[in-house]
Design a protein around this nucleic acid. Structure first.
Lengths: 346, 346
DNA sequence: CTGTTAGCGCCTTCAC
DNA sequence: GTGAAGGCGCTAACAG
């Protein structure tokens, strides 16, 4: 099956020079007669030469390769992060290994270890559930590990964050400004830090406005199903504490909000007339559901790019201490119909 | 930055044996005294040894690595394919390189070439725009290339397909069974073969039922925006030919259908009362929009797994001719509210 | 059972 | 300007 690949030795033989010369010619390094250079390059082309990056990686101890760990391919958050990572990576001739952790800390570490066996030059972990444990790994192996929206606590590692607190704070403020007074929060029980921060932003602004920040429920996951399943307990809790439904539900993310939307629709509850609804992330589809979701635009693509940039900076700097180890990006409120009651022209 | 990694030589030195012995011990190959073996394994563990798969790849000419090319990370079709590929890959200790072609044939070929430089053992291309050109590449390099839902024509390559014709046929039949008579097709101008097949399935069943298969429009892409933008020309075309709106629109995929849904809603057109709507793929969200979409379940995860299985089969067989070079999977109709008018109890 | 030797394909000194 | 030698970390062949 495997054809023998042509190596620089083959080219050397064919052109009557030595392999080092071929190597230099191909990398346009060292001066040499234009004649031999073009002869070598021509031979390489006609013989169908492809340099072996494996061999090069071995000798250089640099593979121009990074490993990207996501929790789940299907999650629109990660796909955008991945896009950012890849775009930045190709600019620098890096290839990207990908693997999913399936939201399992043990698997996440296995995957990282596998990447290290592949001698990747850097590792990016999106929504890590392990977090600061990487500080040790980093010490051990010297392979830069950059986290995107680390879900664990601890800050002594390289990370690109989004400002979840401010985002949630702003969304909640928007709801208050719209006149909603019983604002519930539907969180994601598997999200760790991101969820804590968003809940904190929600709670702080509510209390500051003199509103009750009591009704909060943790969904079992951050997906459609988790959102839908969270509705019943949330309504129950509101009934119990307030003897009334919430007039607004703030969700951990857009995906859950869409799950909520269907559940509310099934119960004959109108959005936003009966209950307003907000998401978080601004995934593309959130503008296409009915009603379109008010949400917080999280710069997912940029998070990915910044993470890759940080890896590259770490790789190219002699003194890693001079590379800023945390980048904090912020997003933007996106107001759509799910929080804006139609004006009645009566 | 880079710590020196510990090699089998280091372990050999520390334990007073030769490196090949260490190598054998680690791979539990060849018999040796349990004593030395455990001594070596202990040393490896305490010294924090990680085998270099790069070096191994170089000598074995087998990297246990595959390259996966998708058109677009964000597309839910590809994320499921990727999941299937990865799950099967990890079972066999393969790592997965990923890259996106951005629906650009030139970029697709570049990416494949880059993978070959990395000496991947196999390549999987999802929704290729290049298709049979790979036959040559395969001949040249001997690296198996498996296509998932090849969008180009030609069949002389390894491929995993979904039966688009039957799927579209069945969806159209369902619409006819529901009593719809003016069934339009909104295609994807960038989809090639898949689109052709689905359109053919639609047209054949309509004609067989004595219905007009005239109103068809090609959207500019297979995304939300492409769906939304396709509505106006489609309605115009129907008006022109039939002097009436279609009573059903069959879309190339779910994503486009969701774009259509919003556009129809914006125009005050009810689904399915005024116009019924179908998607294709059965992406998760299609069950969550309002109304939930009738669609065709495409076994995306299985397509990915089968593709990876084919790569492995090709790798492990001495005679590639004995490996079936085409796998055809079929899907399943999923009926939801977007085609079923509520029964009126009058 | 274990050590010696060789080589995967490439790059980097160093001579010439 | 170019060639010769050595080595990256590992495995495969052969000795012993």
């Amino acid at each position: 099956m495997q054809k023998k690949r042509v190596s620089i030795k083959d080219i050397a033989e064919a052109t009557g020079v030595s392999h080092p010369t071929v190597s230099r010619a191909l990398r346009s390094e060292g001066r040499m007669s234009d004649q031999t250079r073009t002869r070598i390059l021509d031979a390489a082309r006609t013989m169908g030469y492809t340099p072996s990056l494996v061999a090069r990686g071995l000798v250089m101890q640099r593979t121009n390769t990074i490993g990207l760990v996501v929790t789940n391919f299907a999650d629109p958050f990660h796909s955008e992060v991945a896009r950012g990572v890849e775009d930045e990576a190709v600019l620098h001739q890096f290839s990207v290994y990908i693997a999913s952790s399936k939201v399992d800390a043990k698997r996440e570490l296995e995957v990282v270890r596998a990447f290290q066996g592949r001698q990747v030059d850097g590792i990016i972990v999106s929504s890590s559930r392990v977090g600061d444990q990487y500080a040790d790994l980093l010490q051990e192996t010297g392979v830069p590990i950059v986290l995107v929206n680390n879900h664990a606590d601890g800050t002594n590692i390289y990370a690109v964050y989004h400002d979840d607190y401010t985002g949630a704070y702003t969304v909640a403020q928007h709801l208050i400004d719209c006149g909603y007074r019983r604002i519930a929060y539907l969180g994601n029980g598997r999200a760790g830090r991101a969820n804590t921060e968003r809940k904190r932003g929600w709670g702080d602004i509510l209390r500051r406005a003199g509103l009750p920040a009591e009704v909060k429920v943790l969904g079992s996951n951050g997906r459609l199903q988790g959102g839908g399943a969270g509705v019943a307990p949330l309504l129950d809790e509101a009934k119990r504490l307030w003897n009334a439904w919430p007039d607004a539900i703030m969700c951990y993310n857009d995906t859950m909000a869409i799950g909520v939307l269907r559940e509310l629709h099934g119960r004959g509850i109108q959005v936003p007339e009966d209950i307003a609804l907000t998401g978080y992330d601004d995934i593309e589809i959130s503008g296409y559901v009915q009603p379109p979701l008010t949400t917080w635009h999280q710069p997912r693509y940029e998070l990915g790019r910044e993470a890759m940039r940080m890896v590259l900076a770490l790789l190219n700097s002699t003194d890693p201490d001079e590379v800023p180890n945390v980048v904090l990006l912020t997003g933007q409120l996106v107001v759509r119909a799910s929080t804006i009651k139609k004006v009645s022209h009566s």
